[in-house]
């Protein structure tokens, strides 16, 4: 595993909402082929951070660098084309579309322009074949032609991941992929995500500590928008500040 090249870097990122500091001079890096987990109590500013990385939220100060390029002012769709993909904390899919249509649409976004008015997009092999591969990969093969709103919660979460993967990303930003999942579904998701570790980098925001410690190469602990600790899972496990601030009630 190479740990030399930073893929994503935030430089002293700042975001305030009124009197609340959601991101407080945050500088962190995600290396190539690294799974970097962000943990922290509710309200620590994790989702706000993801928003600033994807471009939905504009930081008040600081910079976001991706693949050696300053992307701070770049709109969401342009960042997607640089290889930045995200999944949403609250499932955010096209509920009226089938699984295949959902994923094909994500493929389509990266397969040339869409000012094509005549040919049936659902018959384009160029869109369907890669979509099918991703659907198989996240284990939704049997649900291919079902409408997304008929999927179970866990399956919808898998579809979230599939749509992000279909954009062929180099960095995946996962906002609580296990949210609302039962133990079986979580285990399945961990399995899917570990299968991705070799091909891309992942920034993982997650409350499920078993999943975090199973997947992460590095963990950063966020409290009130600031990083209070960063290190390997073992270092974090034994870090006193972390234990006090966050893991306190889970201390063995």
């Amino acid at each position: 595993m190479t740990r030399s090249v930073p893929l994503l870097e935030t430089v002293s990122l700042m975001k305030r909402f009124g009197g609340l500091t959601a991101t407080d001079h945050l500088s962190l890096t995600v290396m190539e082929n690294e799974v970097h987990a962000i943990i922290g109590p509710n309200g620590a500013g994790k989702t706000t951070l993801i928003g600033q990385l994807t471009g939905e939220i504009r930081p008040d100060d600081g910079r976001v660098l991706f693949a050696g390029r300053d992307v701070t002012g770049l709109p969401v769709h342009r960042r997607s084309h640089l290889g930045l993909a995200r999944s949403f904390q609250i499932t955010n899919i096209f509920l009226d579309f089938t699984v295949l249509e959902n994923v094909s649409l994500a493929v389509q976004a990266h397969a040339g322009h869409s000012f094509r008015f005549f040919a049936d997009a659902r018959k384009e092999r160029r869109l369907i074949a890669p979509a099918e591969a991703v659907i198989e990969r996240v284990g939704l093969g049997r649900r291919r032609d079902d409408v997304a709103h008929s999927l179970s919660h866990g399956e919808q979460r898998q579809l979230e991941i599939a749509m992000a993967l279909a954009t062929d990303p180099v960095l995946l930003l996962l906002d609580e992929p296990m949210a609302g999942m039962g133990p079986d579904e979580s285990a399945r998701m961990v399995e899917i995500l570990s299968g991705l570790k070799d091909e891309l980098s992942i920034l993982l925001v997650e409350h499920d500590m078993d999943a975090v410690f199973a997947l992460a190469d590095r963990i950063t602990v966020l409290v009130y928008g600031a990083a209070i600790a960063s290190g390997t899972p073992d270092e974090i496990r034994s870090n006193d500040a972390v234990l006090d601030a966050y893991l306190g009630d889970e201390r063995p």
């Binding site: 769709h77 997607s80 949403f88 899919i93 096209f94 509920l95 994500a106 976004a109 869409s114 992000a164």
Partner: peptide
Amino acid sequence: LNDRRMKAIGFP
């Protein structure tokens, strides 16, 4: 259906 998701997957 979902403009936010469209942007996230790369559509202007």
